[in-house]
């Protein structure tokens, strides 16, 4: 589904490339973990997959079409959903409205379906009262669940997450990881999670390690 072809990226100079000649394949219905040392370039790689930045070399294809051709804004809107370590919710809205907004912007099939959004939030353990008050009044774990619910109500087949459990305790981490597996296996999406937690990486179907500018499959 998602093909990375001869990908290379550097910030200031080509000699300092974070990674070069990366060729990988990501399939729907599968979860992937990306691990590696701090500063190795995991987040940078993910931002390329998410269409937040353009690669210096090579290209990324979604269903055989270059994402540059799709257009990055259009690609973000229709093909990819992003979860960040810091949740990245619209702070002036309720969880429900965050979902409604995302559904509207991404032109989801469930666009405008309030009951569907509420059902999704309920599945993720939010009470009806919690889903209508401001998101900032929720705990970190609850906020991250809202961010995950946001990816679930959108139609994008690719879900990328950058350290989604970084701010969560053990119990919340387990819940969130379980959710990502469900997204991959039940919603038949492609889930790519950057993480430094071995437990999280272990629950994914495949794990890649970024080291020495190269990605290699972990055992």
């Amino acid at each position: 589904m998602l093909k990375v072809n001869d990908l290379g990226y550097w910030y200031d100079r080509q000699e300092n490339s974070l990674f070069e000649h990366v060729t990988l394949n990501f399939e729907a219905g599968t979860s992937y973990a990306i691990v590696g040392q701090s500063g190795s370039g995991k987040t940078t790689f993910l931002s390329l997959l998410a269409g937040l930045d353009k690669p210096r070399a090579g290209q990324i294809e979604m269903n055989g079409e270059s994402i540059n051709k799709i257009g990055l804004t259009n690609y973000r809107k229709s093909h990819v959903a992003i979860v960040f370590q810091s949740y990245n919710l619209l702070t002036y809205m309720s969880p429900l409205n965050n979902l409604m907004t995302a559904m509207a912007i991404t032109d989801s099939a469930h666009r405008g379906d309030k009951r569907y959004a509420m059902e999704m939030l309920r599945k993720l353990g939010l009470s009806d009262e919690q889903m209508t008050k401001n998101v900032q009044r929720l705990s970190g774990g609850q906020q991250q669940r809202v961010a995950i619910a946001r990816t679930m109500v959108c139609d994008a087949k690719l879900v990328v997450a950058d350290e989604p459990t970084g701010n969560l305790d053990e119990e919340n981490t387990r819940d969130v990881i379980e959710l990502f597996q469900k997204i991959a296996h039940e919603q038949h999406k492609c889930v790519i999670i950057v993480t430094h937690e071995p437990d999280v990486a272990a629950t994914c179907d495949h794990a890649y390690r970024l080291a020495q500018h190269k990605f290699s499959l972990e055992a």
């Binding site: 937040l52 804004t73 973000r76 809107k77 229709s78 990245n88 619209l90 991404t106």
Partner: peptide
């Protein structure tokens, strides 16, 4: 800026 970033990441047009 943060809010704008969130909207952009969702694919909202500028």
């Amino acid at each position: 800026r943060y809010e704008i970033g969130v909207l952009l990441s969702l694919g909202e047009s500028r």
